[in-house]
Design a protein around this nucleic acid. Sequence first.
DNA 1: TTCTATCCATAGGCAATCTATACATGCAGT
DNA 2: ACTGCATGTATAGATTGCCTATGGATAGAA
Lengths: 112, 112
Amino acid sequence: MTRRPELLPGTLDMLILKTLTRGALHGYGIALSIKRSSDDVLTVEEGSLYPALQRLLVQGWVMGEWKVTETGRRARFYTLTAAGRKQLNVELSQFEQMITAIGRVLRDPQEA
Amino acid sequence: MTRRPELLPGTLDMLILKTLTRGALHGYGIALSIKRSSDDVLTVEEGSLYPALQRLLVQGWVMGEWKVTETGRRARFYTLTAAGRKQLNVELSQFEQMITAIGRVLRDPQEA
DNA sequence: TTCTATCCATAGGCAATCTATACATGCAGT
DNA sequence: ACTGCATGTATAGATTGCCTATGGATAGAA
């Protein structure tokens, strides 16, 4: 464990989908949003973000369309689809269940 | 994401170290303990567990010695070392921080 | 005009986990 | 005696998922 992951493995898709529930965003905006709302704890590297967005597009969980930002630059804006919203709920409940289970292990006092 | 991981990636070492704070255990016992104390939510596969134990041995976070179980079988018993205890604390606090950060992202209402 | 922030994207690598398999023994039931 | 199950260790190979390192392009500020 020499490595220092910037986020918990397996949570990236969930974080992206959740971020998009607040409206369409381009990739860079998604990264900024996650960074800010986590108080700079979670950093999504570009080399993680764009491949993830490709996966989400292929799976039909997000839609993408080229537009122009407020600052006049071309950017691809991603929108959550209905399927994406469903998927988010699935991932949220699985995550919740995992965290609860881990919490039990970490706090479990007895045994033998 | 067709796959169904049995645990949250990146948390296995922490779970093993934590389990060993309650005393020495052999591999199979560790797996059972985690499964039970998580109410069967977390399952540690053998192909994940033994490589993980090897890592922990190499890093000096656990010690291993061959003994005989109560049922008369040979088994390798693992014990937490002082360094392992320290490492556990590091991982616990990092995990806590991650979870807190993710929680903020998942609950964050505002933005633009 | 040079720098910084904004924006997209891919290649290559690596760590961690899973699947599948192999082997061995104690004990209970038939 | 045989079968099956729980107990117990271990490795090979594949896959997933994220990171590092790049590369390129433009708007706006200094």
